[in-house]
Amino acid sequence: MSLLNFILWWGELPLQTVLLYVLVRKQIFRTFPWFFAYTLFAVTAGISRFLVRNHHPIYMKVYWTSEAIYPLLGIAVMYEVFRSVFRNFNRLWWFPPIFPLTVVLSLGLTISRNLSVPSGLQSGWMSWIVGAELGVRLLQVAMFVLLVTLVLLFGLRWRQQAVGICAGYGLFASVALLTTSKFYEFGTRFKYLWGLASIIAYSIAVLIWLWYFSVPAKTEPPRAEQPPLTAQEMGRYKEIVRRVRRP
């Protein structure tokens, strides 16, 4: 493995470790426990893979075990993001079923696709793990599209950390889905290129998360440089507010 390849292949691990450090420092496990768990797992899995990279049979076991856990964490993170971004919508009766419906549709579409396009993997359980991963990628893309649409429609804030999590996953998942599909279509001819594209996309996703979680919280905006309202003014304003009908 050349130095460039080595950096490309393992370069995301230091980035992910920095992200973990930022998450710990900002106590993100309080607000996004599943995303924190995902990052912690990604760092642990990455280090484990790195340590056993020269022992092929052990590497395979570590690789496939971690790959089997990623989809479960992926769904949990997306649910966390969904709940966080759309908490204002919970009063609407038609909104809560959107997430389970998106999960079911994504999985349904993935299963249909897996049945029509064979993965080429010899082992059945490997196919299931790859299928589950594809399902979660599709779910991440679907959530990202839903989020962008609703951000535009309802004016949600793009700097929200949940939006950052979803944007990172959305970008990476779109690239991962594209490369996987093209891998099926073109076979191993562009294997290196597809692998590279996925790694670069994931590194960009980690950079997006780093940016979202590193930006310091906004300080309190300065109040109007005017003296406080007088009691008379306050009374007048309260009277006007009272005139606005309440339900």
């Binding site: 579409l109 249909s112 696709r113 959305g170 779109s174």
Partner: peptide, 16 residues
């Protein structure tokens, strides 16, 4: 299924 699959990928990139 293929059309829906490609549509989702395109929607993902368009959202970016």
């Amino acid at each position: 299924v293929g059309i829906l699959w490609n549509l989702m990928i395109s929607a993902g990139f368009m959202s970016c």
